Computed example of a mutant assay.
Amino acid sequence: MPFSPFLFCHKQKIEEKELINKYYDNLPAKDRSVIYYKIIEELSFEEMGAKLDEKETTLRSRYKRALDKLKRMIGNNYN
C-alpha cells in the first residue's frame, strides 16, 4: 500500500487510520512533529522553522525521512 499524506483525511477507512496512527505513534517525537505540523496544521516549512527554531532545510529533510520511515513501517506490516 503506497503511503500518501492524504491518508490522514476524514474519508479514510477506519482500519487504515488505525494502522497509520499505530505506526505514527512509534516514530521519534521530532518525526511526528514535522508530520503533524505539515499535514494536520498545514504549516509551511518556513512557519515550522519559526515555530520550532530550526532551519527550513532541516525540516524538509526530516519530513521526507519521516514519511519514508512511516511508509516502510506500514508497507512491512500491511496485510
Rank of each mutant, 00 (worst) to 15 (best):
R60T: 05
L52A: 05
L67P: 01
E41V: 12
E18Y: 07
E42I: 06
K30N: 10
A66W: 02
F3D: 03
E54R: 09
L52S: 01
E15T: 12
F8L: 13
F45S: 04
N21S: 11
K64C: 05
G75F: 03
D31N: 12
G75T: 07
R72L: 12
Y23R: 06
E47W: 00
K22I: 08
L43K: 11
Y24P: 05
K51T: 06
G49A: 02
N76H: 13
R32Q: 14
E15V: 10
M1F: 15
I14K: 11
K71Q: 14
S33C: 05
K69C: 11
K64V: 09
R65G: 01
I14L: 15
F3I: 05
Y36G: 00
I39W: 04
A29F: 08
Y36R: 03
K69W: 06
D31W: 06
S61M: 06
M73L: 14
P2Y: 09
Y63T: 00
D25N: 14
E16R: 10
R62I: 02
T58Y: 06
L27V: 05
I40W: 02
D25W: 03
E56F: 04
E16F: 07
K71I: 03
K55T: 02
E47Q: 13
K71P: 02
E46M: 09
E41D: 07
Y23P: 03
K17R: 08
F8I: 09
S4G: 14
L43F: 13
M48G: 00
N26D: 11
H10R: 15
F3G: 02
E47K: 07
E16A: 10
K51M: 11
D68G: 04
A66H: 00
Y24N: 01
N26C: 13
E18K: 15
Q12H: 08
S44C: 07
H10A: 14
L59T: 01
E18N: 14
P2T: 10
I14Q: 10
L27R: 01
T57G: 03
G49L: 02
I14C: 08
F8R: 03
K69F: 08
Y23V: 11
Y78I: 15
F3S: 05
L19M: 14
E54W: 01
H10D: 15
P2G: 02
P2W: 09
E18M: 14
G75L: 09
L70Q: 03
R72Q: 12
R72S: 13
F6Q: 15
R65Q: 08
L43I: 00
L27N: 09
I39N: 08
R65T: 08
L59N: 00
D68P: 01
L19P: 03
L27S: 05
R65C: 10
T58K: 03
Q12L: 13
Y24I: 02
R72G: 07
I40V: 14
E18H: 09
Y24Q: 05
S33M: 07
K22A: 06
E56V: 06
E46R: 13
F3W: 11
D31S: 11
A29D: 09
K22F: 13
R62Q: 07
M73G: 07
L70G: 01
I35F: 00
N76P: 03
R62H: 08
K55G: 04
Y37F: 13
L59W: 00
R62W: 04
